[in-house]
Amino acid sequence: MTTHSTRVVVGVYHLTKSFGKQFVLRDINLQVANGEFVFLVGHSGAGKSTLLRLIYMDDFPTSGQVVVGPYVSTRMQRSIIPQLRRRIGIIFQDFKLLEDRNVFENVALAMRINGTPMGEIKRQATDILTRVGLYHKRYEYPPALSGGEQQRVSIARAVANRPAVLLADEPTGNLDPVVTRSILDLLFKINAGGTAVLMATHDLDMVKSFGQRIIYLEDGRIKRDKEMIYVGDLRERIAESKVGREAEELGDHDLSDRQEE
């Protein structure tokens, strides 16, 4: 069905970012392959959020380059940024849901902005909400949901446009361990569908047991980067896990197709 290449979906090359004289990131090099799951680990202030912001181009490097699919930071025009954002999903610690819209509308927003027909939005949103287990709460408003549920809605919104990569900035920072685990499982499930995930977290203990690639960020530099894992290996490993079995149940709704669309 899909040929999984090791194509790079996010590339960061000799990136340096400073605010005035303060260096936040120094000479960062990293690539995230299509379908890969990468943890970006570091203390608060290590530069994780800044790195993610540079990737979704809310800000630009002082020197060096960020490449996301066909978009290159050094040749970026502001008017093209919306196109880039539609090809990456972003989730945050504070969910960033619109509180005056219900769950369905929050998810639909991501598809409305590019003019997806109403029928298609309904179908797609229903499908995604079912997969994150919140279809029965589609008419609820965010304040009525628990933290875990809100994060699920924000994940649903992030993947609504079938992005090539999902950026997650401390997505479990506000959640208790049990809910954290369920959110991670959901992210693994989405990754198993072919979407690359780059997740920033300060919690090394939480992530080191998973065996995914971990990039350590310290004082704005990459301290250590476990070798890039080829998707094939990753798939095998996931297939053996519980998450992998769930992912298979997703059936033919495979998120990985969009790269070739």
Partner: peptide
């Protein structure tokens, strides 16, 4: 402001 921020994040154009 939050609505505007979220809309920008999900890729809404300035016109939208």
């Amino acid at each position: 402001r939050k609505t505007i921020e979220v809309m920008k994040l999900v890729g809404a154009t300035n016109a939208y």
